[in-house]
Design a protein around this nucleic acid. Structure first.
Lengths: 186, 186
DNA sequence: GTCTATAATTCGATAGAC
DNA sequence: GTCTATCGAATTATAGAC
């Protein structure tokens, strides 16, 4: 089977869109920019994705893909969770950069991040610590991980961007560990 | 002395601009929106602030205003720092919401946040723990505090927004405490 | 000081030729 | 499938009357 030309064009548009959306965010990204980046005609974008919103909805996807065995060795869960987050984010084409870059100003992106929290992170935390305190614990975890991603990948704040993966994991792992299993205020 | 009309107009524009910029970010905010919110003519905005960029530069300001005595009771520094952050952010007109809402897509806003880190937070951390590990520690603190602000005030993520100030401080204080004085990876 | 009119751009989207 | 031409809307910014 020869791959159809239209599919190759579509893939090229998708890749270019991910790149441009991740770099400048939804508002500043233009269909013309994306088409130029993909070396195709701007009208092709409309043909294949219908609208700028349609292209964004197609591109701005993210699956946290948490492993099932996080609760098995509870004393190292924080570190493993931190390492997993970083690995997933740094996967090319994960779509997370697209989402986070636009979340502050684009309601669709913001809603998808909220959905990842409530549909993926929260259930995992429930499975680990039970339903009672899970929302608080998941919320604290989300705040730290979103802040890390914002500082390191979106804003590229010097001190955070300069740290190695190992330093990040060693610094943040214990935080997640405490957010999972440490004491909590009522 | 009667306050001059022009000054009152300028203040009204500033207040409206802060509100609109904080709510929808730099790109989606329009001079017309801001003028309508301030009940003045859009041309007045140009007259007093020169351009949309000029207005944003005037509005998007933030002073972390860290107290000098943070290092004096080192065992409670994390909690006091967390409480101080929250108090400053929730001050009306602090300009922090304006900055954070636009930081992901606006280079000026991003640069100002980076400046707060390097010129205000970092020196304070240096004063507490010395210059050696200060950048890492300040970077970790920034990641947690920016993530909290993003989750709670910008994205309004359910679980984070639902927590009380006390719960936030109890949850995040120990994290900052460890980022300040705990062990670090090399 | 205030407002009207409009210039100059930019962009998403459409129509239709080839 | 691909591309040209262009519409229509929105927005920043300016010129100038009052």
């Amino acid at each position: 089977m020869i791959e159809r030309k239209s599919e190759r064009t579509k893939s090229a548009i998708r890749a270019a869109a991910r790149q441009v959306f991740a770099l400048v965010g939804y508002e500043r990204a233009t269909i013309r920019d994306i088409a130029r980046e993909a070396n195709i005609d701007p009208a092709m974008v409309m043909r294949y994705f219908g609208s700028k919103d349609g292209l964004f909805a197609d591109t701005a996807n993210f699956d946290l893909n948490l492993p099932q065995d996080l609760g098995e060795a509870p004393d190292k869960a924080g570190e493993r969770m931190a390492a997993h987050f970083i690995a997933v984010w740094e996967q090319e084409g994960s779509g997370f950069a697209v989402l986070l870059r636009s979340a502050s100003s684009n309601p669709v992106a913001a809603a998808r991040i909220a959905a990842v929290l409530s549909e993926q992170l929260l259930p995992a935390v429930v499975a680990m610590v039970g339903p009672q305190e899970a929302p608080q614990r998941a919320g604290l975890i989300a705040s730290q991980m979103l802040g890390l991603a914002l500082s390191r990948y979106v804003l590229s704040l010097g001190p955070v961007a300069a740290m190695s993966r190992e330093q990040i994991i060693a610094g943040i792992g214990p935080t997640l560990q405490r957010y999972l299993y440490g004491p909590l205020a009522r």
